[in-house]
Design a protein around this nucleic acid. Sequence first.
DNA 1: CTGGATCCTTACCGATACTG
DNA 2: CAGTATCGGTAAGGATCCAG
Lengths: 132, 132
Amino acid sequence: MPTQSAADRRAAARLAYDAYIAKCPSRQLLSTLSDKWVSLILTALAGGAQRYSDLARTIAGVSQKMLTQTLRSLERDGLVSRTLTPSVPVRVDYELTDLGRTLLPIMASIKEWAEAHIEDVQTARTRYDNLT
Amino acid sequence: MPTQSAADRRAAARLAYDAYIAKCPSRQLLSTLSDKWVSLILTALAGGAQRYSDLARTIAGVSQKMLTQTLRSLERDGLVSRTLTPSVPVRVDYELTDLGRTLLPIMASIKEWAEAHIEDVQTARTRYDNLT
DNA sequence: CTGGATCCTTACCGATACTG
DNA sequence: CAGTATCGGTAAGGATCCAG
């Protein structure tokens, strides 16, 4: 029996997991990935490690609570790593893991799609709202 | 002055809109796209038009309310078209618009990523939860 | 600087009932 | 079949205060 490559395992997983099924774990994962803060945080880390305060500044309007909470979730899911430097004051850096980097292109695409097509969408909304 | 192509306009839009800015319209659009039902509905329409009841069956566990609500939102945003056939009983088909089709590859990627990497994520979660 | 803990106000969303 | 309308529990998420 030949060794199973990572690609093979993913191919098998594609058959084993189906987000259309309510109880499939991949559905739950899809839910957590479907979060604006997730896409904004991951894309903000595209260029390399970022301090907590840098992330807060980049992602305007994010509350302390949501930033911390989302980062914890991403860390737990293995998408982001957290590095604490015990200086005074303390310094914390967040960085994409290898796994997180495989998700980055997708998250970047969504953000870019939104920025590139918002005008089309606004046009469609106006048209829709003017019907009847 | 040369005619501006659609690609040019999108390139300009990429500079004009920035989802990192809280009040940017693209941030709001990113929020609505960051919804598990959005990704599941759009990917369910990948193969062509689908009836309401077909969508409900494909996307297991979605409530009538959320399915209708999300479809209305997608229709308003110009991503999905709604075709009513006034038979008895009535028949309604939903289909991706041209705009929706440009988003489809991205949404399909997220769903596939979740299915392909859920095991990696579960491993990471176990490791994280076992640390102290 | 980087959070944890708490309160409190939405807004999401499922369940249910009703309609062309 | 494909919705609309309403109610109500729950959870998301902002604001604030405090701490290492």
